[in-house]
């Protein structure tokens, strides 16, 4: 079985070259920021997809893993001067450990119950971080300025390095997702999604594979959290641990197509420009109009595009052949 067709490889190659050249072609920090946010949410969506799209565990609490990642590296750096790259790995491990902890009570939950449990978990983390003095409680953490270098994971003169790092993270997570999807684990996860009970009867270790999916997803999500902290250089619970972040992650995946490797990337590429533009153009007055449009968009996607754009693109691609 060939996993990729020649056509797919050449299209992906062309897209990659274009993306690599993008920072050279555009000027202006908004254009760069926008693409960084597209990559960032695409990566978060890909990570969500491993547990949500393949295994059917619809998590609405990804912000917890994102926040744990961001906080772990930032705390280790501000308190002990630990290099952020090591902090990134530590954050991933911390998030995976948290995922294991929450995965145990949730390992048998399905559908709505899982969704609510994931929100409950994320809310506990948010409330706790808001009151945890060691990590700055509600005031949050500010990451002190460093010289700009890849080693320090900090850049001041240009956003381009952040752009390339986030693109690399996206490719890495796509690789992990493709590996999961094509491996035996992906097969089992889909079986569990189709029917929990049938999979169990057939001898699939349901709890083990579900846990593995949650932990991989948490690790990748936390990694993006560290990136976000190094990019914004400030974090507090109300900016990284909130429900709207979790919802946006789900939305990106659903719009693109949950359960396909590339789906969340397409979803992020469509949704983020819309949400960032409305935020910049309409959000400054605090009138709520940007969020009214966002809410309307969510309803429209759910009603008219619930299967995701990726499916439509594939159909068009097949017809052309």
């Amino acid at each position: 079985m060939k996993t990729f067709t020649k056509r797919q490889i050449s299209i992906s190659g062309a897209v990659l070259v274009l993306l690599a050249l993008y920072p050279l072609a555009v000027s202006g920090s908004f254009a760069m920021h926008l693409m960084i946010m597209v990559f960032l949410f695409a990566t978060l969506g890909v990570a969500w997809n491993i547990m949500g799209g393949y295994a059917g565990m619809f998590s609405f609490g990804q912000a917890a893993f994102f926040g744990i990642g961001a906080y772990t590296s930032s705390f280790l750096f501000t308190a002990y001067h630990v290099n952020p790259w090591i902090g990134l790995l530590a954050g991933g491990v911390a998030a995976a450990a948290a995922a294991a902890l929450i995965g145990i009570p949730c390992s048998n939950l399905r559908g709505h119950y899982f969704a609510i449990a994931s929100i409950a978990f994320a809310e506990i983390v948010r409330i706790h971080f808001n009151n945890w003095k060691l990590i700055g409680a509600a005031e949050g953490l500010t990451i002190p300025m460093q010289d700009e270098s890849l080693r320090n994971f900090m850049f001041h003169s240009s956003k381009a390095p952040y752009y390339y790092i986030m693109l690399a993270f996206l490719l890495l997570s796509l690789g992990v997702c493709a590996w999961v999807a094509t491996s035996r684990m992906g097969f089992y996860l889909r079986a569990i999604k189709e029917s929990h009970d049938v999979a169990k009867v057939l001898g699939v270790d349901v709890v083990r594979y579900r846990m593995a999916a949650i932990m991989i997803s948490a690790f990748l999500t936390a990694m993006v959290g560290t990136f976000y902290a190094q990019y914004i250089l400030y974090l507090d619970p109300e900016s990284v641990l909130i429900l709207p972040i979790s919802v946006q992650i789900v939305l990106v995946s659903m719009l693109g197509g949950a359960g396909s490797v590339m789906g969340p990337v397409i979803g992020a590429a469509i949704l983020l420009p819309i949400s960032e533009f409305t935020r910049v153009k309409l959000g400054f007055k605090g009138s709520g109009l940007d969020m009214i449009i966002y809410g309307t968009l969510i309803m429209l996607i759910s009603v008219y595009q619930p299967q995701g754009v990726w499916g439509i693109l594939q159909k068009i691609g097949r017809k052309k052949k």
């Binding site: 789900v250 605090g286 809410g295 996607i301 009603v303």
Partner: peptide, 22 residues
């Protein structure tokens, strides 16, 4: 539609109503 859309659509309603009130 798919179960996920049923979950997400009411989030849209929620965001819409809360911000309409704002």
């Amino acid at each position: 539609g798919p179960g996920l859309a049923q979950l997400v659509v009411t989030f849209g309603v929620s965001i819409f109503l809360a911000n309409l009130a704002v």
